[in-house]
């Protein structure tokens, strides 16, 4: 199929940037969205132009790098997929596709479609861990009994790949789905209890410091999240934060 692409081009962090229109031809419906971008970049390079910079790594939906806002939705129109898993069969011949970077003050653009998501790393560093000795005497994983439901819910929360689609989709640029998932994956398990109070307080403080907006429960994040992270995780984080604040 033949497509018209409207893509955000920005030379660097300081550049103002603008939307630029391109045509791509002979795109197979079996291609992934990133493969279609590869075709475009090959065209651009052959003509001596600058290829469109975009993030990607695993190309199988696990690293969370591929960040594109496609036709007004993070990771495009399909559900439960990242941009690298999005197939071109979701589009029709002759379509115009608008492609923008994930937009949030806390995700500044580095170049074209590449954004800096290290604000997520700093939130993780503020509390998204448990302190255990790993010096040789590793404990058997089954030594601590864990409720099956809690284990399942913790696993679900832990599937968050930190892609930032929740922030990009949120009209408030709120990071609460991401932070809710990261708080929950520990809050649900006995290993997470020891540092629970500090964890949620520090992670929320860092989240606020990074300049993410305030959640108003629109639920856009849950719909656009490629891993189906549930809003229940935000509710859990709110409860955790409330009780942690009372404990002081």
């Amino acid at each position: 199929m033949n497509l018209t692409l409207k893509i955000w081009r920005q030379k660097g962090p300081q550049d103002k940037g603008k939307m630029v229109e391109y045509k791509v031809t002979d795109i197979s419906e079996h291609m992934s969205f990133l493969e279609m971008m590869d075709v475009l970049n090959e065209q651009l390079t052959n003509k001596g132009g600058e290829p469109v910079a975009f993030d990607h790594d695993c190309r199988e939906g696990i690293c969370g790098m591929c960040s594109m806002y496609i036709n007004g939705e993070a990771h495009g129109p399909d559900r439960g997929v990242t941009t690298c898993q999005l197939h071109m069969r979701m589009f029709k011949d002759g379509d115009t596709i608008t492609i923008e970077p994930f937009r949030a003050k806390a995700f500044p653009v580095i170049k074209d479609l590449v954004v800096d998501r290290s604000s997520f790393d700093r939130i993780q560093q503020a509390g998204g861990f448990i302190s255990v000795n790993t010096s040789g005497n590793t404990q058997d994983a089954n030594a601590i009994p864990i409720d099956k439901h809690a284990a399942d819910e913790a696993m679900d929360a832990a599937t968050c790949i930190g892609c930032g689609a929740c922030v990009a989709s949120c009209k408030n640029s709120s990071a609460m789905l991401f932070v809710g998932a990261k708080v929950s994956q520990y809050a649900l398990l006995p290993q997470g209890q020891i540092e629970a109070t500090d964890r949620v307080k520090n992670m929320v403080a860092q989240m606020d410091l990074e300049g993410f907006g305030n959640c108003t429960n629109t639920g856009a994040c849950e719909v656009e999240c490629p891993k189906g992270i549930s809003l229940e995780n935000i509710a859990r984080m709110n409860r955790e934060f409330f009780s942690a604040s009372i404990k002081g």
């Binding site: 409207k6 940037g17 939307m19 806002y69 608008t98 949030a104 640029s173 907006g213």
Partner: peptide, 11 residues
């Protein structure tokens, strides 16, 4: 919340 996104989406 409006300030948390400096540049709006074109679409």
């Amino acid at each position: 919340n409006k300030n948390a996104r400096a540049i709006k989406y074109a679409k």
